[in-house]
Design a protein around this nucleic acid. Structure first.
Lengths: 199, 199
DNA sequence: GAATAAACTTGACATTGTCAAGATTATTTT
DNA sequence: AAAATAATCTTGACAATGTCAAGTTTATTC
């Protein structure tokens, strides 16, 4: 019933969504400027009205990914705010679930969009906000002795490194099957993170 | 002085080396089948005598990357075998130095070559051997109470996740400048890894 | 030495990112 | 409201890429 209009309405958003869906269904190799344009129902050059080049679209998709990740983290943080030990594990687990639910998008988000620092400021700001959420979680855990005292910044680096490395290596199938058979993944993760917590 | 021969001699190795050099000097976007062929001084289709497709060349380059990484780890392991605390930190630091010395290659190694398990067996075996070296280091550290007792496999997962995540996030500039200014990188890493060690 | 296989070249094709020029619609200015 | 301008989108082109088919040159095998 929709009129075939020359102007799309919100092509920028449509291209980001289309790109995200292509990532979900067909992976990174299928995500081209032209495939995103096709999926949005416009010509192959239409994206250039909204994005400087392909990198610029990828940065926008990554930014949207960070926003969605922040949404998931927020849910966990609110749900477990009264139980710091669960807070840490469940927030980390949310990070991992996001990565596993959209692996191609997750990999894109951490695949070198940031060549020069000022090229994509809104991406950068999404990255920084995500980090800040983690620092807050860590600080909360430190106050209740779930994590050792000390600089929250430094401790957050350790925690985030472990969580991120865990899911990155898992997505790349770097862990041998033998160890994955012995555990449920969440248990393996919780045990790993447990090593950082105070006994 | 070299004769212009029709047959190259060892084109397979030459293509892997050329590809590696392109990664070093110009990054992943410059690494194409054709650019590697050009750098090796052969025609654009010559690689197909040795590699099934581009993925196959990338897998071979990644495999070589893992072998070089193993070399670096071996040096640290031999050097610090009598001092378990240094052993852990210095081996992890070697991993990080490798990643920072060849970031494009390092990212390629962990960027999804493994779609199906049996496509690249020699790559898989290099991956497994690298993991095994880490497990051995961890087991050594456990025997001397530098790391908590328990399954060496599980502890290695935690250690590797932290080390890998640390350098992956650093390469992607995910850590804010504020924290990097306060520390030397190695110190920040050692502090992070220290949280996993027994006090 | 002939036959066969391996290594390499040449030429082609569809796809991609990108640009230039033009067409259509929205917005602003008068 | 009409005109001018800007924004959005289309069409057409170009070089570069991955890949294949066919042919050429060299090495290996019988």
């Amino acid at each position: 019933m929709k009129k075939e209009k020359y102007h799309h309405g919100d092509l920028k958003k449509a291209l980001i969504d289309s790109g995200r869906n292509i990532l979900r269904k067909e992976g990174i190799t299928a995500l081209t400027l032209r495939s995103a344009a096709r999926a949005a129902g416009v010509s192959h050059s239409a994206p250039y009205a909204h994005f400087a080049d392909k990198q610029d679209l990828l940065a926008a998709i990554s930014t949207q990914g960070f926003l969605d990740l922040q949404g998931r983290l927020t849910l966990s943080i609110e749900k477990y705010q009264n139980s710091p030990r669960d807070l840490l594990i469940e927030t980390g687990w949310s990070y991992i679930q996001f990565a596993m639910s959209e692996p191609a998008c997750f990999k894109l988000m951490f695949s070198g969009i940031l060549e020069d620092e000022h090229a994509h400021p809104e991406f950068m700001s999404a990255v920084r906000k995500t980090y800040q959420m983690l620092v807050n979680v860590v600080a909360t855990c430190q106050k209740t002795n779930v994590l050792p005292a000390g600089s929250a910044d430094e401790t957050a680096v350790a925690v985030w490194s472990l969580v991120h490395g865990f899911v990155a290596l898992h997505l790349e199938r770097q862990f041998p099957g033998t160890i994955l058979e012995k555990h449920k993944l969440k248990e393996l993760f919780a045990n790993s993170l447990g090593l950082l917590m105070t006994a």
